Simulated scan of single mutants.
Amino acid sequence: MAGVASSSRQRSKIAPYLMVLPALAYLAVFFVVPIWSLLRTSLSSMSGSVFLPTLTFSWNFANFGHAFSLYEDQIIRSFTYALVATLLCILLAYPLAYVIAFKAGRYKNLILGLVILPFFVTFLIRTLAWKTILADDGWVVSALGSVGLLPSEGRLLSTSWAVIGGLTYNWIIFMILPLYVSLEKIDPRLLEASRDLYSSNARSFGKVVLPLSMPGVLAGSLLVFIPAAGDFINADYLGSTQTTMIGNVIQKQFLVVKDYPAAAALSFVLMAFILVGVLLYTKALGTEDLV
């Protein structure tokens, strides 16, 4: 009996590791191996022709210095656009998520469905649609020009605001859903208690709703900022050569110039900046705030 009990305890200790094994294998094959390959490429030197390049691993750390010095403007622009788009997502998504969570009543699921519905259309098609909407001969430019918000020769397409608008629209769903989940978890009795204590609606929001919804704000901010910083579709279709983001540079280095070490180094520079930001967040606020 003692042997059976010992064997059962041993199996119970091994079982969690066996359950995690498929996930670890998946991460190893589709995350660790590609990252390792990208790292080797970023430290390699390239020789040969453009059509038949030869990569030689040579611990060439100079690729990182060149990547940052040559494309510093694009890196700064990418993070600036991503930050502005994230702030706009918060300003636009918070009222909508608040209404769905507290005011929608029986129409809650319907409104959520309508919010999610446009995002069943592929990312590229939605961006091309915005290119048509913001075109110089489109109704948006005409309407803004007629009320004096745009000069006669003014335009929206191929500007920084067009790119930021595209980023905001394409990633706002990742702000709405975490905010809605966070607001939905707030106990309505807390709001009733604040009103019983003669708190105004504005004070109840500032003292009860906003602090309790901060995990949703923070989670949504990460979910919007990280992909927006590496985006290249919006800058490619809605912007110009003056609004190029680091994602556009990486794409062209990989597919057009075929300078694979430079492209890999740029990818790691982008990942490093994002990783530092995420680590600073988790250190300051703790990952438990994201539940």
Rank of each mutant, 00 (worst) to 15 (best):
A262K: 02
I186K: 05
T132G: 05
D136H: 06
A23I: 09
Y281Q: 07
L21R: 08
A263K: 07
E153H: 11
S152R: 14
L43I: 09
R9S: 11
I226M: 10
S152G: 14
G148S: 13
P215R: 03
V269I: 13
L191K: 10
F268T: 10
A129F: 05
N63V: 05
M271S: 12
S194Y: 01
I35K: 03
L280R: 07
F268S: 08
N63M: 12
F232K: 07
G166R: 09
G105D: 11
L114M: 14
G148A: 01
P211T: 04
I75Y: 09
S199H: 05
V217M: 13
R106E: 09
E192N: 11
D137K: 15
I100N: 06
C89R: 06
A5D: 08
G206I: 00
S45Y: 00
M46Q: 15
G145V: 00
G154D: 12
S204V: 06
S182M: 05
F64S: 07
S58I: 02
P211M: 04
Y94I: 12
G3A: 07
G154N: 09
W59N: 14
V224A: 03
L190D: 02
V84C: 03
L24V: 12
A229H: 03
F268K: 09
V276W: 06
S42K: 12
V269N: 08
F79Q: 02
I76T: 08
L87F: 10
G148Y: 09
L222F: 06
F68G: 01
V147G: 03
A235N: 04
Y26W: 15
L197E: 06
L157V: 13
K131A: 14
L70C: 05
L183T: 06
K283Y: 09
V147C: 14
W139F: 14
P211G: 05
V217S: 05
P53S: 02
N109T: 07
R155C: 02
L52V: 13
L124A: 06
F268P: 08
S199Y: 01
G286A: 02
L157H: 00
Y180N: 07
R203G: 04
V224N: 07
L117D: 03
A15E: 11
V209E: 14
T168N: 04
Y98L: 14
T80Q: 11
P188E: 01
N248K: 04
L270V: 10
D289E: 15
L96G: 12
S37K: 10
F119M: 07
G165L: 11
I176N: 03
L112G: 10
P151I: 07
L218N: 06
I186T: 11
F79H: 09
Q74A: 12
L112P: 10
L280W: 05
I133R: 02
A263M: 02
Y71C: 04
P118F: 08
V32N: 00
Y281E: 08
D289P: 00
I14Y: 01
I164R: 04
N109D: 14
F79S: 10
R77D: 01
P16N: 10
